[in-house]
Design a protein around this nucleic acid. Structure first.
Lengths: 165, 165
DNA sequence: TATTGTTATACTCTATAACTATA
DNA sequence: TATAGTTATAGAGTATAACAATA
């Protein structure tokens, strides 16, 4: 693939590196908007914003305090207060005092929230199946593996008490 | 990789397919939130919403009518009216009568909008470099190639007059 | 009649600022 | 003093409904 840019040397190795980054970022950005579109639509059908859906997904195996959750989401703590309050009124999650710090408030998913979240994530998988199905199983595994190093580490899991699952 | 789920048959080929889909969708969703986070932050520094930034990116080589743009973005036309009006007031894009249909309005990027968009996309690439840099160039190319079949087709490009670039 | 786009309205999301309680 | 969280406020994003102009 040559270029007709008179300023750039043809076959410059640095250009090749930059091109592979451009193509990758273009693909990542496009896939991001596509995924967000699916999640936004599925959430909207249940009057859940994208952020609320994301929070519920996080809470499935975590019990973070407000401030940690806000930092992870990149939101101001005041934004999270309202968001959590609305979801709490709908019975999807609860707030509980943090046992170690009387200033802090932990956020927990409820059974109803867990049930709804599980249902919506199945819907998302179904909605994306036509897209992911254009790869075979080996390609899907390879894509997931290549994605792994690019991903930011998630919020740490909250350990479950021994003996429960 | 075995499972301890007592309900599922071990090494069931259908389970393996489902697992590869789950892992892929998990990675795609996580990468989507990561990319959105970067774009949201970069846009916010210029008082641009994620959607406005996306619109500007689309307009770089397209001149869609309002209704087509709204449909592609998955937004109501009334939502787009406000969005475009605010960006137009800032001089980043313009509306022009569609020559073929007197009801329709085309959306065009301005020179200022193009300049800003180019700058922000460079910023996004720089912000994502630590993440994409965890792959070498060959891996980046492979990742982009595997992503390609998964992606929804973009809005059609508006052909440029011959002789211009 | 149907389509394109705008406007009025209402609600959610978001950040900033000011506040209380605790560390 | 600094940190955790809430509330008040204001602006942007979003959809629904009603409307005017054109197809």
């Amino acid at each position: 693939m040559t270029t007709d840019d008179p300023e750039g040397a043809i076959d410059d190795p640095e250009d090749a590196v930059a091109d592979s980054e451009d193509a990758l970022i273009d693909g990542l950005v496009r896939s991001a908007f596509q995924i967000m579109g699916v999640l936004t639509r599925i959430g909207a059908e249940q009057d859940l914003s994208l952020t609320q859906l994301r929070v519920l997904g996080i809470l499935r195996d975590r019990r973070p305090r407000m401030s940690d959750l806000a930092a992870f989401l990149g939101l101001d703590k005041s934004t999270l207060s309202g968001l959590i309050a609305r979801a709490e009124q709908r019975g999807l999650l609860t707030r509980a005092a943090n046992p170690d710090d009387k200033r802090a408030v932990d956020v927990l998913i409820t059974d109803a929230g867990r049930e709804l979240t599980g249902r919506l994530y199945l819907e998302a998988r179904a909605a994306l199946a036509p897209a992911t199905g254009r790869l075979d199983a080996a390609q899907r595994r390879q894509l997931a593996q290549l994605l792994e190093p690019v991903l930011t580490p998630p919020l740490p899991l909250t350990p479950r008490p021994v003996g429960r699952r």
